[in-house]
Amino acid sequence: MSIQHFRVALIPFFAAFCLPVFAHPETLVKVKDAEDQLGARVGYIELDLNSGKILESFRPEERFPMMSTFKVLLCGAVLSRVDAGQEQLGRRIHYSQNDLVEYSPVTEKHLTDGMTVRELCSAAITMSDNTAANLLLTTIGGPKELTAFLHNMGDHVTRLDRWEPELNEAIPNDERDTTMPAAMATTLRKLLTGELLTLASRQQLIDWMEADKVAGPLLRSALPAGWFIADKSGAGERGSRGIIAALGPDGKPSRIVVIYTTGSQATMDERNRQIAEIGASLIKHW
């Protein structure tokens, strides 16, 4: 067993022997301040990774656009098919120029040779490549099948209805392509620590998230040296922004954090800054 596999296998073990965790309302004060600064709703939840206990939450059962955070769930569904012998990570998928959609920095470079399922998941999570996500959605049967996968996990809230990039439209009061912070946090925890996926697939999923290259201005910008984070960000229309993450000190994750916002007129930089400040408060009061 590799060191990384050992780390993920012992996530519940280490967490069980940690000192009790206590909620700190100071972080919620910052979440509410972010709402004021952005002029928009902000949803927040913080779960203990081992027990699933909610440590703090704000608007945990209000719907927010998922945006690209759905790509972690998508690759979880792909990995479940791999575990069941219905898919192979090494299978190569070929596609054409007509398949390319807006923001496809990886797939646009491989029109000639195609990409493997493993490479597509890596591109979808680490670079948020939209064509990679659409190609992977095709392998599982489309958005409705991802929703069905989530329902089978016990998540009857999260739903995907459309493809990239239309799913980022974020129309107010439109339930399409949305989740709730509580539902997303619980589902992410199941994917990373539950028995739904094999140990190898859980490790692969967290490795992809740990290698995320496009979430630097968010929670990662607030992390002290030595902290662990595996995350996936999302951005959408109407001032929408979000991030889902597993993080913790001492090089291992111990909490799940989900943050979503929508309806702001603020710039992307300002949305990023507010999420980073929430992260800084979380870490300060850990």
Rank of each mutant, 00 (worst) to 15 (best):
V214T: 10
D83T: 06
S104E: 02
L282E: 01
I259H: 01
R118M: 12
M184W: 00
E62Y: 07
L247M: 15
G216F: 07
L191P: 01
Q265S: 14
E237D: 13
A34G: 07
F149H: 08
S80N: 15
D207V: 11
M153E: 07
Y103H: 08
R92A: 09
A183R: 10
G234R: 00
H285V: 08
K109L: 14
I54T: 13
T69R: 00
S68G: 03
T267P: 13
P105R: 06
T187Q: 06
A124N: 04
E277K: 11
F58N: 15
S122Q: 14
V101G: 07
L55N: 07
R220M: 01
E87Y: 05
L191K: 02
A225D: 12
V101T: 10
A84G: 13
L28V: 15
L223D: 02
D207T: 13
D99E: 11
V31M: 07
D250M: 14
L282R: 03
H285N: 15
A276P: 02
M180N: 15
E61G: 13
T131K: 03
A185T: 03
D161Q: 05
E102S: 15
W208V: 00
C121N: 00
L150W: 06
L74F: 00
E119Y: 03
E195F: 07
T107K: 01
N130D: 05
A235H: 00
L111I: 14
K144I: 14
K53W: 09
E164Q: 02
T186Y: 14
E108C: 07
A148D: 13
L89K: 04
V106N: 07
F70V: 13
I256G: 03
T262G: 06
L196E: 13
D174N: 05
S122D: 15
E87N: 06
A225N: 14
L247P: 04
A276H: 12
A235P: 06
E87Q: 07
L49V: 14
A183Y: 11
A123D: 03
T131M: 05
L218F: 03
A133Q: 01
G154K: 07
A124G: 07
A133T: 10
S233P: 05
G141C: 05
T126W: 03
N134Q: 02
K53S: 14
I243Q: 04
A84H: 14
T138M: 15
V257R: 00
T27S: 07
N173H: 14
H151K: 13
A40E: 04
W227V: 00
A185W: 00
M184H: 00
K213Y: 09
L28C: 07
G85I: 06
V257M: 06
K144H: 14
V42G: 02
G76V: 05
L191Q: 00
M115I: 09
A222C: 10
L199C: 15
T27Y: 02
S104A: 09
N173L: 12
K190R: 15
V72Q: 03
I45M: 10
A200P: 14
D113E: 13
T69A: 02
R159L: 06
N98S: 14
D231T: 05
D129F: 00
A246N: 06
H110C: 08
L191Y: 07
L188K: 03
G90I: 11
L146Y: 06
L196G: 12
K71L: 01
R189W: 13
I140P: 01
G236S: 07
S233D: 00
D83W: 01
I54R: 08
R91A: 07
L137S: 06
G85H: 12
P60A: 15
P60D: 15
P143S: 06
I278P: 01
H151L: 13
A245M: 04
S264L: 04
A34V: 12
L146T: 03
D177S: 02
L135D: 01
D269L: 11
S51N: 14
G141Q: 06
A77P: 04
N130G: 03
T116I: 06
T138K: 15
T198K: 12
I244H: 01
N134T: 04
F228N: 05
K109Q: 15
P181N: 00
P25W: 12
I259E: 01
E166G: 12
I256K: 00
L150P: 01
M268D: 07
L74Y: 00
Y103C: 05
A77G: 08
C75R: 00
L73W: 03
T147P: 04
M127R: 11
M209N: 01
R92E: 09
I125D: 03
M115F: 04
D36M: 15
A123P: 00
D177G: 00
T186K: 15
L73M: 11
R41P: 12
H94F: 11
P105S: 05
N152C: 11
T262F: 08
K109F: 10
T179D: 02
A266M: 15
G114C: 05
A40S: 11
L38M: 12
A215L: 00
C75Y: 03
Q88D: 15
I93Y: 07
A182R: 14
P253F: 09
G141S: 07
R92C: 07
E164F: 03
L247R: 02
G236N: 07
I93W: 01
G90V: 11
H94N: 10
A34S: 09
E175C: 12
I171N: 15
M153N: 09
G242N: 02
D48K: 03
D36R: 15
Y95N: 03
R91M: 06
D99M: 10
T112R: 13
A222T: 12
C75T: 08
E119T: 05
